[in-house]
Write a protein that binds this DNA or RNA. Structure first.
Length: 311
DNA sequence: GGGCAGGTGTAAT
DNA sequence: ATTACACCTGCC
């Protein structure tokens, strides 16, 4: 199989072309809350892959990647981005559910990323009781402070061995807050060989989950995020406030349910596609929430304007 | 300026 | 097994 055509060197770097099958949507996949270090702007995504700053853009049935160093990286990038997932077939299966069938037109094209387990683990420990802009800020500061510098304005995600010997005060300067001890404890477990992130890939969902739950700062939600976004365990169904609201409203007639009941419900209903179902429900719910926020912001602004005019 | 934001750990029932 | 509470910090 031919994945990627290389060549066309320019001052911007080497351009690699990856084939993309519909309904894959790069921007949605990178902005639906799986990863926090991609900068997406006007259809273009900048980030780090395989130790190189890369720029991605999707257009008519292909995906352009500028900046890869090795020919092998094309296939690895395709896997990372989920270009090898049969999304058409997956979404057809999801559409047998009447709720998802209604939602899918607004959410179609989301693939599950195959992130680096270490980066994914730290990212979601940082995400707890936090908001997205600050999560992004924290991870960026961590990378700038402790990650390898790859280019003028690009830093790799910090390695465990580096964070393992970083003072808590220095970690807190990256706005980690009370999560600083968790992050360092994780780094020390990995650095000391007492936890091997890559080893979980070979385990079944339940076993891998048990291992993750033993880690400091890792509860059920974070564990399921890592299982889904790094290891590709499709049964994982992370339940955060958005997904909880979505399931209660759309499947349980608005009746409040516990997080565990919601997860059990979804796993029974969607099986190994639970993770995809979660992404569509989450993305849809958050888009609606953001629409509400935008409207409130606009109302607030117009109120302020009217007050301004009265003066 | 008080409350909120992708939960988790801990203590108490 | 379930429930209540504290928690860093930036932002509106």
């Amino acid at each position: 199989m031919t994945v990627g055509v290389r060549g066309l060197a320019s001052e911007a770097g080497v351009r690699t072309v990856l084939p993309v099958a519909p309904p894959y949507d790069l921007v949605r996949t990178l902005t639906c809350g799986q990863a926090f270090r991609w900068q997406v702007e006007s259809g273009e995504a900048r980030g780090i892959f395989a130790g190189m700053p890369v720029t991605l853009r999707q257009r008519d049935g292909q995906l352009d990647a500028v900046g890869l160093a090795l020919s092998d990286d094309a296939a690895r990038l395709a896997h990372y981005l989920g270009l090898d997932q049969p999304l058409r077939r997956i979404e057809q299966a999801l559409a047998r559910d009447s709720v998802l069938r209604r939602i899918l037109p607004a959410t179609t094209g989301i693939a599950l990323l195959r992130q680096d387990p270490w980066e994914c683990l730290v990212s979601f420990v940082v995400s707890t009781f936090n908001n997205i802009p600050k999560i992004e800020l924290t991870l960026d500061r961590l990378a700038r402070a402790f990650g390898e510098r790859l280019a003028e304005t690009a830093w790799a995600f910090p390695r465990a061995e580096r964070l393992a010997r970083t003072g808590l005060a220095d970690l807190r300067r990256c706005l980690l807050g009370y999560r600083a001890p968790y992050v360092r404890a994780l780094a020390r477990l990995v650095d000391g060989g007492r936890f091997e992130p890559d080893a979980l890939a070979a385990l079944a969902y339940a076993e891998a989950r048990d291992r993750l739950l033993r880690l400091p700062g890792v509860g059920e939600k974070v564990a399921d995020c890592v299982l889904l976004f790094a290891y590709g365990k499709g049964e994982a169904f992370p339940v955060d406030v958005w997904v909880k609201r979505a399931v209660e409203r759309r499947y349980l007639k608005g009746k409040p349910a516990t997080v565990r009941d919601i997860r059990a419900f979804a796993q029974a209903r969607f099986g190994t596609l639970a993770g995809y179902a979660q992404q569509h429900l989450f993305y849809n719910e958050r888009e609606q929430g953001n629409r509400g926020t935008r409207e409130r912001d606009r109302d607030r602004r117009s109120r302020a304007d009217r007050q301004e005019e009265r003066r």
